[in-house]
Amino acid sequence: MKAQYIKNVDLKQLRDLKSDFWKKIQPNILPMNPTPVAMQPTQAIRSEWESKPYGLVKEVSLSAAHNGRFVAFRLEWTDPNQDENRHDNSIFSDGAAVMLASVPGAPVTLMGAPGMPVNILYWRADEGEQGRNIVAEGIGTSRTVDQEMVVCTEQWANNTWQVIIARPLKIDTKEGIAQLSSGKEMAYGVVIWNGAGGERAGIKSYAAGGDQLVIGEAG
């Protein structure tokens, strides 16, 4: 899939769910599956979830655009509940993330591997606009590297979440994030957490992008 280059838009417009250009981009519909129980990192999680349903979100729509400086991913999925912060210990927030291979060959499905980081652009309903820029080198290793570069827009209406996750194409850092530029290609994936179903951490829906994400050429 392609992150289309859009001329003459600023970050504000990229982040606006109502911007006209979004209507012209054909979204990619990705089927989602629960992350396998066997991949859960602890015994307690495996034994609790082997008999419980999770991965409740079955499909996500993904579009991407960039303006030469910033890239924006637009996600939409059906969720009958808006789970933000209902204040109890067993209430969890909805969340979503776009995963990008930071280096060629980094296994996105396995959240990276030692020396082969994956970059996770992360939104959680209770954290709102402030997204997280996360790097992982394998399951259980994810680490927030900053909370400034990733910004989000969210809206829940008609049983649907619409979320835009944006960040600069390039970020000046030594962390193992994905550095993006026109023409670059990389493996990608999408993760959705349905808070009402107790989904968090590895208990989630996952979609592997079957193809490569291409950053469209400017011009």
């Binding site: 602890t42 015994q43 307690a44 495996r46 034994s47 609790e48 109890d88 210990n89 067993s90």
Partner: peptide, 11 residues
């Protein structure tokens, strides 16, 4: 073997 448990609520 880990036994599944319950998260106590605020109540």
């Amino acid at each position: 073997k880990a036994k599944p448990g319950h998260i106590p609520s605020r109540d």
